[in-house]
Amino acid sequence: MIWQFDTLILLLLLVAAVVSLRLRDLLAASVVFGIYSFLMCLLWAEMAAVDVAFTEAAVGAGVSALFMIATVYQTTRKSSD
């Protein structure tokens, strides 16, 4: 375990989660959520869970962010909180 690397990614993960929940622009929130998923994928690769990291890279960072963007496009972009 490279704990410095681990800690850095964990802190960035916290920042990404907070930013994605605080943003009032839902499109930006979806994109930041994609960043959050990508950081998660890095963390799993670092934990030797390569299969999980691979799945998350395909699903979390790619597909689920796209699903959210599609929904934001079809509904509204503004959020009250």
């Binding site: 989660a17 839902l26 959050y36 998660m40 799993w44 999980v52 689920s64 009250s80 909180d81």
Partner: peptide
């Protein structure tokens, strides 16, 4: 707490990935 439904869903995903992270 969030009132926006998409925000609630982002919260749900963050919640579930945190648990997955714990398991891994």
């Amino acid at each position: 707490v969030k009132r926006n439904l998409i925000k609630k869903l982002i919260g749900m995903s963050i919640f579930s990935t945190a648990i997955i992270l714990f398991y891994v």
